[in-house]
Amino acid sequence: MKTEIRNSFGEIYLTVEFHEAINVVYNNWLGYQTYASIVGGANTSLKVSKEYHCSYMLNDNSKVVGPWDHALEWITTDWAPRAIQFGLTHFAHVVSSESFAAFSAHNMHTELNEKLEMRIFDSVIEGLEWLRAAQQAQDPR
């Protein structure tokens, strides 16, 4: 199931999808993100994660334009504690290394530190490989 979230202009700024075969919630953010879009989108991704009891999230910011530090405090003090409470254990964050969004992602990583297992990647494939390895380490059947 794919959820598309639109801004007030009717443009999609986030798609959220649970991939059952790999047990990952995939968030694909697009364009510039306002505080309201971040709160709405992050809450939607958390709802999907909770609904499917999924502990692994791939957050793709490779198509985000500009920083999102304006929502960093909310993410670290509101969203992240709820995500951890609902069972999120691993958060792969994909950014374009040349973007302002990468700076925001590094700030988020610093703020979350040991509260949530989070890594930053340059590609979706690298993020998925890390999540797959984490899943195998927790359930090495």
Rank of each mutant, 00 (worst) to 15 (best):
G66I: 08
H19V: 14
F103I: 12
Y32H: 10
L30G: 03
E129N: 12
G127M: 05
S49A: 14
Q136P: 01
D78S: 14
L128V: 02
F100S: 00
A21P: 00
W68P: 02
S55A: 13
F121T: 00
E114L: 14
E17K: 03
E51M: 07
E117Q: 15
N107F: 12
H93Q: 11
S123G: 03
D69L: 12
I125K: 12
A80V: 15
V39S: 02
S55T: 02
H70A: 12
S104G: 12
W74H: 06
M1K: 04
T15Q: 08
A71V: 07
E114I: 09
D122T: 06
F121Y: 09
A80Y: 09
V48Q: 04
R82L: 07
A83I: 12
V39N: 05
L14Y: 05
F100M: 11
T89R: 14
H106W: 15
Y52W: 09
S45E: 10
E126S: 11
S99W: 15
N28T: 02
G40N: 14
V48Y: 05
S45I: 00
V25G: 08
T34R: 09
V95L: 00
I5Y: 02
M1E: 04
K50P: 03
N107M: 15
G127S: 00
S49P: 10
E114H: 06
I38K: 14
A101W: 12
L72F: 01
Q85F: 01
Q136F: 12
E20L: 02
F121V: 04
A71K: 11
H93T: 14
M57V: 13
A21M: 06
A42Y: 13
I22Q: 09
F86V: 11
W130I: 03
A92G: 01
N43D: 15
A71W: 07
V48K: 09
M1S: 07
V24L: 06
V48A: 02
V16E: 07
G66P: 10
I38A: 14
A101S: 09
